[in-house]
Design a protein around this nucleic acid. Structure first.
Length: 876
DNA sequence: ATCCTCCCCTAC
DNA sequence: TAAGGTAGGGGAGGAT
């Protein structure tokens, strides 16, 4: 099925979903890169050819290195007959059945052999104890948690919630972008018209109503989306109780440190609002979370992401734990996730509707959307239900999945109508029946009423909208707050004046992980936080925004909670901490974000081993403004040139040199009041600069000073702190300080002021124009400009120039080529990714050509050096 | 009044 | 084993 897919369709071209793929390719690519330049150290593994299946510890990368340095062979694919051993830490049953005739060995075989400098007997390292039909996996091998460098991508590849979330954002963006098209032809409307004529189902009424067509909103919701998609390839399971989950059955390991009963008890206690010293009031019994009922010691704690209507009839609910579900319904069929397929079906759904019917769509999630049908009904003269019937028929044909639709005069009514229509049905809630209809609606079906609000209402004796409408606005407001009061008051009467929102503008960007967080030390934690910061930067870049407020969110094991959580690698029963910090200048820089987060972490002084969840959030977003026109010149005005400095910087990175570079660059750019002569020296020279090359050269010192002061400010714990104690206030890039939160800035300033010199440093400036050939220039550039700086620069370049200059194209490609020659393709890849992202964002033909031009050069040199092309985006 | 921070709630 | 994310709205209470 996958093989037959047309590879050049819109889906392939469409960004956002390619992340997993990219990560995979990147890995291959790094593997390829590191396969060169090996030096053979021994022949321990002579005659051994391994293929690595799945995630291992040590990583496949490391194992590969070990093999290659010690006479062994590494296969990227399993090659029966050639591969002598399969290395795996874990194997799914299906795979095991395929491979069980081969030697499947734990990776420790390799690492231990290396340690002992001789080939050990693999039979002592077999992954399975016997070769029966079920793999008996030795679970004592190290579990994968957030200390592992590949954890985050692995987690994202398997997290349904992450998927749901990112898909929602992606489709909102898709709607945004599609609406920019000037579409006039809607083939679906023509088909609908034809269908009505042929079927002569037209009812007279609809013709009358066209004179006074009211706004009609349609709500479309796929029926139990994940299950429906899954059943396309498993038609044999149609009609049965089916659930989508990670678990394969109802068995889990008994692990050390787990006390399920104790942990569940803590949740119940918290949910009930238990409090030792509240004995005078009647205890308010909140509904217990029934989620953990009936779970015994070894029942699966995996969650059911989605279950079929047959399963629902038997009492299974989404979110239920597999252990409990199987007790309620032992015949429940469990099927695995298929993330790629969900994306495809959702994409089909959206493009079908938007290409063929209307652009007036609000995306709610991957499987749910609102549609303003006014225009469609006007042009086709169809009745609302005719439209619904026809559209549902087409969606079913296109996606193979059923959906339900509700129609009404506002979003709320359309939604409630859908609820009534489900499964696989449709319902038009007409105005004259609204009052009766609403009377019997269960409060929990009203959007915005969840378990807490719903429960609070139940304690007031209210379970339907009819009863809710008996409460005065005043009561509702004093009980629930002003806004929520109003919304309850209106919603229970079927009123909702919210407009469809077509323009998606993100207000916050966040990344959080509350699974698999097990750190042994602060370094583990820091590394992970850094990854989250990178993730945030990437997401901000994707939407071309920067943000001002950074919030850190931590989950920490509650002191009463068992050491290990009931769920494998779960967060267990935790205390929650959030703390935010406002920058004085918006940013998307992961480095800067990390500084802030790190600072907060240090303040909180949390034991890293007790962390169970970490999240970072950026709020107060604004567009990355393209600054003023001629901003290249602005850019220049922050810079200064001094060939001597370049010299200094090229001997890279000893503390002393960095210190010197700070000293020099800072004194040049310190405020004009302090050093007027320096400012003068920044000179007209820059205004003559035509090429970005100059700019980059100039900015490099500035950048390094930034990096250095960055290190300085992470105050309390960093060892380099001491060696930098001599940094002076006037030496620190003020733009860096500006971007820090006030308290942090104050702290650094105070510290730095203490070191202020008696007399200002004087620096010699060489303002002679550099007249060197492009090649010399670019190699110089390459030597002096740090990769991160180049990334930053590429971004600035694309954002601020209307058209790329040839010399800048050359400069960038030569820089990249230099990197590749130096075998630093990871760095090159990073820059290319950035370049791709910003150009894609810019969506301008000349820039795209510029990308292709640069990539042509890059691929040529790749072929030259590696005899292979770099796997990167080749279309926009 | 309006904003900010730290929550909590809800939805998918 | 298991993959407990993410964005938005809003309230309480204090600062401005």
């Amino acid at each position: 099925m996958k093989r037959n897919r047309n590879e050049t369709n819109g889906y392939e071209q469409w960004g956002g979903y390619m992340e997993a793929k990219k990560i995979k390719l990147e890995k291959q690519f790094i593997e390829k890169a590191t396969s060169d330049g090996n030096n053979v150290k021994s022949q321990i593994f002579k005659g051994i050819s391994i293929f690595i299946n799945g995630y291992t510890m040590p990583s496949s990368d490391k194992l590969k290195h070990i093999m290659m340095e010690n006479g062994g062979v590494y296969h990227h694919y399993h090659r029966p007959g050639l591969t002598t051993h399969i290395i795996a830490s874990n194997l799914p049953t299906a795979k095991f059945k395929l491979l069980k005739q081969y030697k499947i060995v734990k990776p420790e075989w390799i690492s231990d052999s290396l340690k002992e400098q001789r080939l050990l007997d693999y039979r002592n390292y077999l992954l399975f104890i016997d070769k029966s039909d079920q793999p008996k996996i030795d679970f004592s091998i190290r579990a994968k948690n957030a200390s592992e460098p590949t954890f985050l991508s692995e987690f994202y590849n398997n997290s349904r919630l992450h998927l749901i979330s990112t898909m929602a954002t992606t489709f909102k963006q898709l709607v945004n972008n599609t609406r920019k098209k000037n579409q006039t032809d809607y083939p679906g409307r023509r088909r609908l018209k034809k269908w009505i004529e042929q079927n002569e189902v037209k009812d007279i009424l609809s013709q009358d109503t066209e004179f006074h067509i009211k706004k009609i909103i349609m709500h479309i919701d796929m029926d139990c989306f994940f299950v429906s998609v899954g059943l396309v390839e498993r038609p044999d399971l149609c009609g049965l109780p089916v659930a989508v989950t990670h678990a394969k059955g109802n068995s889990s390991m008994k692990r050390e440190g787990v006390d399920r009963e104790a942990e569940f008890g803590l949740y119940v206690k918290r949910w009930r609002g238990d409090d030792e010293n509240d004995n005078e009031t009647v205890q308010e019994i909140r509904p217990q979370s029934t989620k953990r009922d009936m779970i015994d010691e070894k029942d699966s704690m995996a969650e059911i992401a989605c279950c079929s209507y047959e399963a629902r009839k038997l009492g299974i609910k989404n979110g239920m734990l597999v252990g409990q579900a199987l007790k309620i319904c032992p015949i429940l069929k469990l099927i695995p996730y298929n993330f790629e397929q969900y994306k495809k079906v959702a994409y089909t759904l959206y493009t079908h509707i938007m290409n063929d019917y209307t652009l007036d769509v609000e995306a709610v999630s991957c499987d749910e959307l609102y549609l303003d049908c006014t225009q469609i009904l006007e042009t086709t003269k169809a009745s609302p239900l005719e439209l619904a019937t026809f559209l549902r028929k087409e969606i079913k044909e296109k996606t193979q999945c059923p959906c339900s639709t509700g129609l009404g005069s506002n979003c709320l009514l359309a939604r409630l109508a859908t609820k009534k229509a489900k499964p696989n049905g449709q319902f038009y809630l007409e105005s004259d029946v609204i009052i009766d209809f609403m009377k019997n609606i269960n409060i929990f079906d009203v959007p915005g009423i969840g378990r807490t609000l719903g429960h609070k209402l139940s304690t007031l004796g209210i379970s339907t909208c009819g009863e809710l409408s008996g409460l005065s606005l005043q009561t509702l407001q004093s009980e629930f707050g002003n806004k929520i009061g109003v919304s309850l008051y209106k919603h229970c009467r079927g009123e909702d004046n919210r407009k469809l929102n077509y323009d998606y503008k993100p207000k916050s960007v966040s990344a959080e992980v509350n699974y698999g967080i097990r750190f042994q030390n602060k370094e583990n934690a820091d590394n992970f936080v850094r990854q989250l910061c990178n993730e945030i930067e990437k997401r901000l870049d994707d939407v071309d925004m920067i943000g001002k407020t950074i919030t850190l969110k931590l989950m920490i094991r509650n002191s009463e909670a068992p050491k290990e959580s009931a769920k494998f690698l779960g967060h267990g029963f935790c205390d929650h901490i959030t703390k935010s910090s406002s920058l004085s200048k918006s940013t998307s820089s992961s480095t800067l974000i990390f500084q802030v987060v790190n600072k907060i972490m240090n303040q909180l002084d949390i034991d890293p081993t007790e962390l169970r969840g970490i999240g970072i959030q950026v709020n107060k977003l604004e567009n990355r403004t393209l600054k003023k026109t001629g901003c290249i010149k602005n850019f220049l005005s922050n810079m200064k040139s001094d060939s001597k400095q370049h010299q200094n910087l090229s001997n890279k990175n000893t503390d002393k040199q960095l210190l010197r570079s700070i000293t020099e660059s800072k004194s040049q750019q310190s405020s004009s009041a302090k050093n007027p002569h320096n400012t003068a020296l920044i000179s007209t020279e820059y205004n003559k600069s035509e090429s970005i090359v100059d700019v980059v050269l100039h900015k490099s010192e500035n950048y390094n000073s930034k990096r250095q002061s960055t290190i300085t400010q992470s105050a309390s714990n960093i060892s380099s702190h001491q060696s930098l104690i001599n940094i002076k206030m006037s030496q620190v890039d003020p733009t860096f300080l500006d971007a820090l939160p006030a308290d942090l800035r104050q702290e650094i300033e105070n510290e730095l002021k203490a070191n202020e010199p008696q007399t200002p440093l004087t620096i010699e400036h060489n303002t002679a124009t550099m007249k060197i050939s492009m090649t010399e220039e670019s190699s110089k550039l390459y030597q002096h400009v740090h990769v991160d700086q180049m990334k930053e620069f590429v971004e600035e370049w694309v954002a601020t120039e209307n058209e790329p200059k040839l010399c800048d194209n050359l400069m960038v490609s030569e820089y990249l080529c230099n990197l590749i020659k130096d075998k630093k393709i990871e760095d090159a890849y990073e820059i290319i990714r950035k370049l791709y992202r910003v150009i894609k964002n810019k969506n301008n033909l000349t820039w795209k050509q510029s990308y292709f031009f640069i990539m042509k050069n890059v691929q040529d040199i790749m072929l030259n050096v590696y005899n292979a092309k770099m796997k990167v985006e080749s279309s926009f």
